[in-house]
Design a protein around this nucleic acid. Structure first.
Length: 326
DNA sequence: CATAGATCCTGTATGC
DNA sequence: TGCATACAGGATCTAT
């Protein structure tokens, strides 16, 4: 499941293989894969040159230059659960779940040493997605408020742990203002982006925190430590090429990462905790699985759990704007 | 406004 | 063997 490290691996591949190349055309094979203007995709991208490959959290985008001005538009991509962006030679067999095909001009259109075009370097950028939770769209680029540019459709996505402009103190303050479980807050992309179920569980394991702890009940130093673990585990995963459980996550050349060998909590149900030997347990949380150590990661007491029942009688209850219909 | 839950999607694994 | 069900889960939409 692509989270920040996996998406960053893909971004680097796009930077190496697609940046500087001109898009000749787009063919949409599955409409759901293009979120807004499926009919306009070809017209929106053809003839434009990919300036670079950018990322925030789990979103990727390719600023598209028309050659005369800084890019005003970008091709935005989210891999969802099973999306892949692959570089393929022209003529390669279509993948079973090929959704969008972009044809790319020669990587070196200006190298006229011999005057002939090098057909072997022409190629395709393909969006392949089995479960169609991912998608592409084009969007105008707007100022991000920090001197950078971002597609306006993802302006609500918070900076991620790898962003050098991240204001850690501000993030900690926002976490502390949340009256919800810490894992739920970690997964909220408007607070801090790039974290999914895998790295949330890994960071919580490293911090020895149970995901049901109330975010607002954690001291700033504890949150600082947790966010440090988030960043550290993501950096380590990136060094391993990301986490792959199967062929659903691969880089632009179809290769898998190896961080699954280093997972300590996610998917480790029944295996001994690497710290204390207690079997890793699995719990349902937010309609998905959560993995944690029953000894190192103590669940909160009822009084500090966000999943605890309603306040006892006599407690002050939040006011309602209108009378309840109950 | 803040928070919680439903929903989309399909290949693979599991159970009876 | 075959069919039904569970599961993976990020972002968006809806409800409270």
């Amino acid at each position: 499941m692509p989270e920040l490290p996996e998406v960053e691996v893909v971004r680097r591949g796009l930077q190496a293989w697609v940046a500087g190349r001109t898009i000749l055309g787009a063919e949409v094979l599955h409409r759901r894969a293009v979120r807004r203007q499926a009919d306009d995709l070809h017209a929106s991208v053809s003839g434009r040159t990919v300036a670079c490959a950018s990322r925030r959290g789990k979103y990727l985008w390719l600023p598209l230059s028309d050659g005369t001005q800084p890019a005003a538009q970008a091709l935005v991509a989210h891999l969802g659960m099973s999306g892949q962006l692959l570089i393929q030679p022209v003529g390669a067999a279509d993948e079973p779940h090929l959704r969008v095909r972009f044809t790319l001009a020669d990587a070196r259109p200006e190298s006229a040493d011999h005057g002939d075009t090098d057909a072997s370097s022409a190629g395709e950028l393909r969006f392949v997605d089995q479960r169609t939770f991912g998608g592409l769209m084009t969007a105008p680029l707007v100022d991000d408020g920090r001197g950078g540019r971002i597609p306006e459709v993802i302006a609500h996505i918070a900076p991620d742990p790898m962003d050098p402009s991240l204001d850690l103190d501000a993030v900690i303050a926002r976490f502390r203002a949340r009256r919800t479980e810490i894992k739920r807050a970690l997964l909220d992309q408007s607070l801090l982006s790039g974290i999914g179920n895998i790295y949330a569980d890994e960071a919580l394991w490293r911090a020895r925190l149970h995901g049901s702890r109330l975010a607002s009940a954690l001291r700033p130093a504890v949150l600082r430590g947790l966010l440090g673990h988030v960043r550290e585990v993501m950096e380590q995963a990136l060094e391993q090429g990301g986490t792959s459980f199967d062929a659903l996550y691969v880089n632009v050349n179809g290769q898998s990462g190896y961080f699954d060998r280093s997972l300590r909590a996610y998917g480790q149900e029944g295996r001994p905790c690497q710290r204390c030997g207690t079997p890793i347990r699995r719990e349902r949380f937010m309609n998905r699985s959560s993995f944690s150590c029953g000894r190192c990661q103590r669940p909160p007491s009822r009084s500090t759990s966000a999943t605890a029942g309603p306040p006892a009688e006599g407690r002050v209850t939040p006011h309602r704007s209108s009378g309840g219909t109950r």
